[in-house]
């Protein structure tokens, strides 16, 4: 049971980070391999605020979200938007370039070592139920993750902004014709995705670690979530993240010698059987 619980917690963490990628990749049809860099950025912002400026952990989270979102807007306005119409190859090369730059920048400012993060005492500790050890921090992750998942689902299906986003993605020209400011929608969406990635990165320092190699180390995981979940679907991403989280934790627990091999194999199999993902909608072309 504890394995399942830990799996759910790491799955939701993964969901927070990858949901932004699911939106850019699935809805806006942009292959952004640099997505992990936003998560890393969030992690470093959190660590700096906490360790050097003494801001309490919970207070850093909104700042992290805003800072990452701001970085997202900045890059979207200056660089990403030029490549919306470009081929996937160009987008891949471009974002790999960004990954390289982010890695060496992080290395330059923080060095190669793992960054320490001291959680506040109220989030530490465990309580025990029969057959189940519940880590308080993991419970916290689950609550935050689920809350954000529901908020996103509601935003996408229940609000005017969500409707505009879906319209802008399905048919940008018609959406423009109806007076929707497609540019602005894309910026906001990109910012939201980067902000969530940053938030996930900050929340994940404790579980995933934080060092300059972060964007490359976990890129496969983020892509798996999108590939398995079906791009652009919140529900799909959530379920895929949970499967991946539980599978990963269980795999490492029961067959440690296989390492990440199982996860990669599942990803490839998944892509062969259902290239559009579990809950896929076809990406806008």
């Amino acid at each position: 049971m504890t394995v399942v619980f830990d799996g759910i917690a790491s799955g939701l963490l993964l969901f927070l980070i990858s949901v932004g990628l699911s939106v850019t990749l699935g809805l806006m049809n942009f292959v952004n391999l640099a997505h992990g860099a936003f998560a890393m950025f969030g992690g470093y912002v959190c660590v700096v605020l906490l360790n050097r400026l003494g801001v309490p952990f919970l207070a850093t989270l909104p700042i992290v979200f805003l800072a990452s979102a701001l970085l997202g807007v900045l890059l979207e306005r200056t660089l990403y938007r030029r490549l919306y119409g470009a081929s996937h190859l160009d987008q891949v090369l471009f974002s790999i370039g960004l990954v390289f730059m982010s890695i060496s920048t992080a290395h330059y400012f923080f060095g190669a070592q793992q960054q320490p993060l001291q959680l506040p005492p109220m989030l530490l500790g465990q309580f025990h139920l029969p057959g189940l050890d519940i880590g308080v921090y993991r419970l916290f992750l689950i609550v935050v993750g689920l809350a954000i998942a529901f908020a996103l689902q509601w935003m996408l299906t229940g609000t005017r902004f969500g409707a505009q986003l879906r319209a802008a993605v399905d048919n940008p020209r018609a959406a423009r014709g109806l007076g929707i400011d497609v540019d602005r929608i894309f910026v906001l969406t990109f910012a939201l995705g980067s902000g969530l990635a940053g938030l996930g990165g900050a929340l994940g320092v404790d579980m995933l670690g934080l060092d300059p190699g972060f964007p490359v180390k976990y890129i496969a995981y983020f892509l798996i979530v999108v590939a398995v979940g079906g791009s652009g679907s919140i529900k799909g991403s959530l379920i895929a993240s949970l499967i991946l989280g539980i599978g990963d934790v269980a795999g490492k627990y029961y067959i440690p010698q296989a390492g990440a091999f199982v996860i990669y194999a599942i990803m490839v199999l998944m892509l062969i059987v259902r290239p559009q993902g579990l809950f896929g909608r076809t990406a806008a072309k």
Binding site: L25, V31, H88, L223, I224, A258, G259, V268, L271, P275
Partner: peptide, 24 residues
């Protein structure tokens, strides 16, 4: 089999699998 995007992920997945196999 798939589109560009699927190709990206399958080639990445296959190479990661082999890397992990060689590693273990």
């Amino acid at each position: 089999r798939g589109s560009d995007l699927t190709r990206l992920m399958v080639t990445l997945g296959v190479s990661l699998m082999l890397f992990e196999a060689a590693n273990k």
